[in-house]
Amino acid sequence: MTGIPTGRLAVWWVLASEIVIFGGLLGAYIMHRIGHPEWEGQAIHTNVWAGGFNTFVLLSSSLSAVLAHQAAERGDGKSAARLLLLTAAGGATFLIVKAFEWTAEITSGFTIGSNLFWSFYYTAAGLHALHVLAGMVILLFVAATAAKNIELHRVENIGIYWHFVDIVWIFLFPLLYIAK
């Protein structure tokens, strides 16, 4: 009826519901941040280099997701699966860097309960990390079926989701790390 394949349509609606979840959280953060200029003193302790590296990793993983989609369009399930695994590896790298980053921050005494800036920092980045993790699980599932050359339309669908996860990070990185 719409001409859009049903699976892709559903992914777009999932994203619509996700946008408002992050929208609510980030909207609340921005309003607080405007009201608390002194949070600058907290934000200075975030690791911009680690965040920047993660941004680079996540953006690159989106590239391999696009290449996987291209391979799936050609009907080449095998290389689509390989590229999806590469994408998932990007997600894993992101989470590993994050784990080191958080460990350093927590041992320096900046925990989720320290003050409201860090509460927002861990809540927003944690919710995003959860999405990265979920995306990786789905990537592995889709890669498994794509390797058998079946259900290739799923490669595009998980790609759309992965780009969304990417874009959320594009908002989080400047808001939590760069804004000083």
Binding site: W13, A16, S17, E18, I19, V20, I21, F22, G23, G24, L25, G27, A28, S119, T123, L127
Partner: peptide
């Protein structure tokens, strides 16, 4: 779908 998201975020908080 359009309205529940902020409350989901609020509920996590």
């Amino acid at each position: 779908m359009g309205s529940v998201g902020p409350l989901v975020a609020g509920a996590v908080m």
